[in-house]
């Protein structure tokens, strides 16, 4: 008998788990007793004729997802936009804050990695600032920056800077001494050494830092937008929570997961491109 490849078996298992999970979920949600027939005024006012807010079965989530995804870019006013527009806003904020952070973290990380004095001088600050929850910056940011959009971007900036900074420093410091020495015997300038020897050698570690950062940034944006409101996927969750519409909340949770996975996959691709075998 021909053995099925490991990948195929894993895929079959995944599908089976999903199916079982969805079935258990579907049948564990008891259908609500919706009163029928003549309703008293009191029953009408307390919504006896309609379903109460509750956890929906997966079939309802699929219907909701179909509705939302078939028209993702509608714009019905400043507080009601399609899911595509909301995700677009979130990605824009994440990428802006993220690239600003990269712009600072990578050169600074290089400096710290190449000079042990700079490393020791900056380390205490990094260690204090790194564990601060990014959302703790929000009130301060709102007060000082006086702009909610820029504050959200700042929060992304501050949370994504640390993994990139530390990984760059770590990667640069870990470049093999021999390679730098070879560069020196070829009389390469410091700049040229940095770009042609150190950078490619440290690239896998740096990109790993960038990959961790984008993951954190995506985690934080949802919370930041729930706080500030206006637009974005976080606002969408908050707005549906207002209405206790759990179907939409679950749908948006899934969307957050999918987008996060795509962002991570993009950096995974870059990571494979810069990897090398010694």
């Amino acid at each position: 008998m021909e053995l099925i490849s490991e990948n195929k078996r894993a895929a079959i298992w995944s599908c089976a788990l999903l199916l079982v999970g969805l079935l258990v979920w579907e049948f564990s949600i008891s259908t609500q007793q919706v009163a029928t027939g003549e309703l008293t005024e009191y029953e009408l006012l307390t919504g006896a004729g309609t379903a109460k807010a509750g956890v929906p079965p997966p079939s309802e989530v699929f219907v909701k997802a179909w509705e939302e995804l078939s028209n993702p870019f509608y714009d019905a006013g400043p507080n009601d936009k399609g899911i595509g527009i909301q995700i677009g806003y979130s990605i824009y904020r994440v990428l802006t804050g993220y690239f600003l952070a990269a712009l600072i973290a990578i050169p600074l990380g290089f400096l710290i990695g190449m000079s042990s004095v700079a490393y020791k001088a900056l380390n205490p600050f990094i260690q204090v600032l790194r564990p601060i929850s990014p959302l703790a910056w929000m009130p301060l940011a709102l007060f000082i920056i006086q702009d909610s959009e820029a504050s959200a971007i700042f929060v992304i900036f501050i949370c994504s800077i640390w993994p990139m900074l530390l990984n760059t420093a770590f990667g640069v410091a870990g470049v093999r001494e021999d390679w730098v020495n070879v560069a020196r015997t070829h009389e390469l300038s410091a700049m040229k050494t940095a770009f042609t020897v150190v950078l490619p050698a440290a690239a896998p570690t740096i990109v790993t830092g960038m990959r961790i950062s984008i993951g954190i940034a995506w985690l934080v944006i949802v919370a930041a937008e729930m706080l500030v409101g206006g637009t974005g996927i976080g606002y969408y969750v908050w707005n549906e929570w207002n209405n206790l519409d759990l179907t939409s909340v679950i749908f948006s949770i899934l969307m957050i997961g999918v987008v996060g996975m795509l962002l991570d996959a993009a950096f995974g691709f870059v990571q494979r491109r810069v990897a090398y075998v010694e």
Binding site: P78, F143, D147, S148, L227, G229, G230, N239
Partner: peptide
């Protein structure tokens, strides 16, 4: 005029003070 939904009073206060 556009009416903009706000998540809470502290944010409404800050967005008013900042001129948004």
């Amino acid at each position: 005029a556009q009416v903009i939904k706000t998540a809470g009073w502290a944010v409404a206060r800050d967005k008013s003070l900042s001129g948004e």
